[in-house]
Amino acid sequence: MGMDEATWARHANPWSAWSRVTILPLLALAIWSRVWIGGWALLPVVAVLLWIWLNPRLFPVPDTTDAWMTQAVLGERDWLAHGDKPEVAHHRPTVRLLTGASGLGSVVLIAGLVWLNLSLTLLGLVLAMGGKLWLMDVMVRARRDLAAAGRDTVSI
């Protein structure tokens, strides 16, 4: 997505991060809309793709980093920089499990959308989104562990 430091700082706004939770359901609905509007379904798909790009650029940098979702976004960046450090080693199995669950959910979601199977689509959404949200909580805890150990954490 080509996010630079300024874009990441804006994405740390809880309004940005929480509104991104809408992306998978909106994308699923846009793809499913081919049933109702045929080839015109490309328009809502393009709109969702535009939303994916625009969202982290739309909101201002948050005034504070106290919000849970702000900590989750910053924690993701901390994990990318320090996920191999011993202070967060105990989080690695959970991160792998939740990343796998989200990935599996994405595969199930895609299958549901291809076959227009509502049960698979909803199961895929639950797995992908549930795994991601739980992972965000792990990122908050990992960020706290890194800070407690004196590691540099991302600031905005």
Rank of each mutant, 00 (worst) to 15 (best):
M1C: 08
D4N: 14
E5Q: 08
A6S: 12
A6M: 05
T7I: 10
T7K: 01
R10M: 13
H11Q: 03
W15Q: 04
S16H: 00
S16E: 01
S16D: 02
W18M: 07
R20M: 06
R20S: 03
T22I: 13
T22A: 15
L24S: 07
L26K: 03
L26Q: 05
L27Q: 04
A30R: 01
I31K: 00
W32T: 04
W32P: 02
R34H: 11
V35G: 11
V35Q: 14
V35N: 12
G38W: 12
G38K: 08
G39C: 02
A41G: 07
A41N: 08
V45T: 01
V45I: 13
V46T: 03
A47H: 10
A47S: 07
L50G: 04
L50K: 02
I52N: 06
W53I: 09
P56K: 03
P56S: 04
R57K: 11
R57F: 13
L58T: 10
L58Y: 15
F59G: 01
P60C: 01
D63C: 04
T64P: 00
T64V: 12
T64I: 00
T65R: 15
A72K: 00
V73D: 06
V73F: 12
R77Y: 02
R77P: 00
W79N: 00
L80Y: 12
L80T: 04
A81G: 05
G83R: 10
G83A: 09
G83W: 11
P86F: 12
E87L: 10
E87D: 14
E87H: 06
V88A: 01
A89F: 12
A89D: 15
H90V: 04
H91A: 13
H91D: 08
H91C: 13
R92F: 09
P93E: 03
V95K: 01
V95E: 07
L97S: 11
T99D: 06
G100I: 10
G100N: 09
S102F: 15
S106G: 14
L109R: 11
I110S: 11
I110H: 10
G112M: 10
G112P: 00
L113M: 13
V114L: 15
W115K: 14
W115M: 12
N117W: 14
N117V: 13
N117G: 05
T121D: 10
G124W: 12
L125Q: 02
V126G: 00
V126Y: 06
M129P: 06
G130M: 10
K132C: 00
L133D: 06
L135A: 10
D137W: 14
V138C: 14
M139T: 04
A142F: 09
R144A: 15
L146D: 00
L146Q: 03
A147R: 11
A149R: 01
A149N: 01
R151A: 13
D152G: 08
S155M: 08
S155D: 09
